[in-house]
Simulated assay, not measured.
Amino acid sequence: MNSPFPAPSFTKSCDTSTTNDICLANAQLVLADQVLTGSITIEQGVITDIVEGDVVPNGAVDCAGDLVLPGLVELHTDNVERHMEPRPKVDWPHLPALLAHDAELASTGITTVFDAMRVGSIYSSQKGQYVEYARTLANELLTARAEGLFKISHFLHLRAEICSETLLEELATFSVDDRVGIVSLMDHTPGQRQFRDLTALKTYVAKKRGMNDAEFAEHVENQINLQKRYGAKHEVGAVSEAKRLGAVLASHDDTTGEHVATSAKNGVGFAEFPTTVEAAEAC
């Protein structure tokens, strides 16, 4: 919530015993420029007063020193996918999954979320293939949002899988009316970025998809071939689509200074999860 006051007034009491307003007292208030013990009064969703001190007026909620701070903003979470598929090969009904996801985030102090959805699927491989789902899920999420079913604010974050077969076709199904906030460039080609260590990749996919050694080797070869066929085209196309949608462009798993330079050239607005000190310093 935004306060109309530039600084604590330290003048009024926050007696809400005869109103429907809210007063949170004896709290650690996280303000723009300081943290202080005090009370905060909220009237019809707007902060109207801040008073310093540990007094708990009549009708106020005694926070007993707990923090009161602005709602957190989650830029990238795969949490909704976890609720959609709580166990391998279990496709949970999407609306209950979305509502559980929403409630879970609200309980942690997150009040705005950019829900990450993968765009870019793989149909040529028979094992561990990526199947398209983002457009359908986005429709369900936007409908639930329009009906006021969520506790917090939801926006779209499209995870553009460069190493896929259908990225540009899937991105084309979205429009500015969807209010896509973020498009992040993902390149999970084995042997670089997040998966420079093939041992770590093997552990990850074997656990998630149940691959044996031969299947894993085939998976690696297929991913590398996809990157060779589509990588450059998909990167250029995803950057263009982000501009069309009015979304902020994000990089993902920058590992080298060269990765960061490429991200900057593409007009990336922020970097998600640089994986090395070199990349972090370059960012």
Rank of each mutant, 00 (worst) to 15 (best):
G181P: 01
L249G: 07
E241D: 07
Q34W: 04
T276K: 09
F270S: 07
V61D: 00
T77I: 00
P274C: 07
H252W: 07
H83P: 12
H252E: 08
P8Y: 00
T189M: 09
V51D: 08
D253T: 08
D66A: 14
H188C: 08
V30H: 13
S107N: 13
S153P: 00
R244M: 08
Q129A: 14
I152E: 10
E147C: 03
A100Q: 15
L36H: 07
A25I: 12
A282V: 07
T11G: 05
C63V: 06
P70T: 13
L98E: 13
H188Y: 05
A103K: 07
H94S: 15
P96R: 10
I50Q: 00
Q129G: 13
I224Q: 11
V176C: 07
M211T: 07
V220G: 01
Y230L: 10
V131Y: 15
V183H: 00
L29R: 03
Q34Y: 04
T41R: 04
E81S: 07
A138G: 06
R193C: 07
V268D: 10
H157Y: 04
T256Q: 09
A282Q: 11
V236L: 12
S164E: 06
D62H: 01
E272T: 02
V205K: 05
D54R: 10
L245K: 06
A214Y: 09
S153T: 15
G210D: 09
A271Q: 13
N58W: 09
T11R: 06
S121L: 03
D213P: 02
V119Q: 05
G191I: 09
E140D: 14
E165N: 03
T256P: 12
W92F: 15
G191S: 07
H219K: 03
G71N: 05
P70V: 14
R87S: 14
G267T: 15
L185D: 01
G269P: 14
L105C: 01
G191Q: 09
S164H: 06
A279P: 03
N139I: 11
S153Q: 15
Q28T: 10
A97M: 03
R229M: 14
E74K: 06
V61R: 11
L31I: 03
D54L: 11
D21P: 00
K89F: 15
V80T: 01
V180F: 01
A64Y: 11
A206Y: 08
K243Q: 15
I110T: 02
F114T: 04
M211N: 08
D102G: 00
I182E: 05
I152M: 10
A247M: 11
P57A: 06
G38S: 00
H83F: 15
D66E: 13
S125C: 13
H83N: 09
A134T: 12
A106F: 02
H94I: 15
T256L: 06
I40L: 00
V90S: 12
F174W: 02
S263G: 13
L185K: 11
S39R: 02
Q28V: 06
N79V: 01
T143M: 11
T166C: 04
F5V: 13
T199Y: 04
M84E: 13
K243L: 09
E235N: 12
G191A: 04
A232T: 15
N2F: 15
V205I: 10
F195V: 04
L171Y: 01
D54I: 10
S153G: 11
A172G: 03
N266M: 14
P4F: 01
Q28Y: 05
K228P: 11
E104M: 07
K12N: 15
N2K: 14
F216D: 04
Q194V: 14
G231H: 08
E258I: 15
A138I: 10
L198K: 06
